[in-house]
């Protein structure tokens, strides 16, 4: 569905880290009878220009993590390095507006934080706070609205008269308006319908790939971000139990359940097929449904060909059927299952 070309891995590992967390702890209300430790010993490194998915069950510390990166919370242990700022425990609360201009954070249900009487004023709120002139802020507002795929006609509307999906996008646009280099979003797709979800993720992927911004997105549904995420962080009980790309995530898919994260459809499907056709296990995890369908198709046909030792027509028919499958495949993940019968027939024969 989204045809972004992936940068190769070697390229990424060389690029600079924009976020670096070293042994970070965070305890809410430290020293009071209500003290609650939210994060333990977090070590994370995030490279510039990557799209990072953060997954984890409820109360696993995802939201706390985002707030630490923005200096809304100061760590109670360790060091948080974001861009050129370093946040340390017990430090004199620094003036953080310079940092916050460069790192935008959209909270859960951001539409609830709109307060002005027109969309335009709300979009200008951020840029004006960060020192833009009225004119600049106006043009930034228009730009942000467009980058979220919304019509300029909305500018004069009252935020509360928009539809839920539009309000969500306006709220995210109000974070983008300040032009942050790093954009963090806390479950931006929650309560959106599937079309709006896909659209939003496509927009975020575009921000990342075309404008080179670093995107951190918290989500409950790994599958929605599987195609575009460069990297995953899984949080469990206040610890970052996993950091790596989708392939590594696929290798540890059995542990996801234990971490309180639903195993994404893609991984479940892929695991089923790799169990049946061991030659698939050597391949990297296909990120899109189409790609996965094609890989499975190839493997299935290769298997058939082996069985019948009909090598002569192998090349042609394989390409043909892969093409056919590609045409059929939409974004739905059940595409590979269509060939289930075929394979089981193959195995039994």
């Amino acid at each position: 569905m989204i045809g972004w070309t992936r940068r190769n891995a070697g390229d990424q590992s060389n690029s600079e880290a924009v976020i670096q967390l070293t042994n970070v702890d965070y305890t809410y209300q430290a020293g009071s009878p209500f003290a609650a430790t939210a994060l333990h010993d977090i070590n994370i490194r995030i490279r510039k220009g990557t799209l990072v998915g953060i997954a984890g069950g409820t109360g696993s510390g995802k939201s706390t993590l985002l707030q630490l990166l923005n200096g809304l919370l100061l760590p109670t242990g360790g060091a948080v390095k974001v861009l050129d700022h370093t946040l340390l425990p017990n430090m004199q609360k620094p003036r953080l507006n310079a940092l916050r201009r460069r790192i935008g954070l959209s909270f859960q249900f951001p539409e609830q934080h709109l307060f002005e009487d027109t969309v335009e004023k709300d979009l200008m709120f951020g840029p004006m706070n960060f020192g833009s002139s009225r004119k600049e802020a106006q043009s930034k507002a228009v730009e942000a609205l467009k980058s979220m795929g919304l019509d300029e006609a909305l500018l004069k509307r009252h935020p509360l008269t928009l539809s839920g999906g539009q309000m969500r996008k306006v709220a995210i646009a109000s974070v983008l308006a300040a032009g942050p280099e790093i954009v963090m979003l806390d479950e931006p797709t929650a309560t959106l319908d599937s079309a709006a979800r896909r659209e939003l993720i496509a927009l975020l992927a575009r921000l990342c790939r075309e404008e080179g911004r670093t995107i951190l997105m918290v989500t409950h549904r790994i599958e929605e971000l599987m195609e575009v995420a460069d990297e995953w962080i899984v949080m469990h009980e206040g610890r970052a139990v996993f950091q790596g790309d989708a392939d590594e995530l696929a290798d540890r898919s059995e542990e996801l359940d234990h971490w309180g994260v639903a195993v994404p459809e893609q991984l479940r499907c892929w695991a089923e097929w790799t169990a049946r056709l061991p030659q698939l296990a050597a391949l990297p995890l296909p990120r899109t449904a189409e790609d996965m369908a094609r890989r499975i198709e190839e493997a299935v046909h290769g298997f058939e060909k082996c069985e019948s030792t009909n090598i002569a027509s192998k090349e042609g028919s394989q390409q043909e059927s892969a093409q056919e499958l590609n045409d059929q495949a939409d974004s739905s993940m059940d595409a590979p299952y269509r060939h289930e019968k075929e394979v089981s027939a193959c195995v039994t024969s």
Binding site: L72, R95, N97, L105, S106, H113, F125, G126, S174, V175
Partner: peptide, 19 residues
């Protein structure tokens, strides 16, 4: 709690009460 979240959200948009 809601007020606190909103304060933080506005702080993230550059309006930090303490600054």
């Amino acid at each position: 709690e809601e007020a606190q979240t909103i304060l933080k959200a506005q702080a993230a948009r550059g309006a930090d009460y303490e600054e």
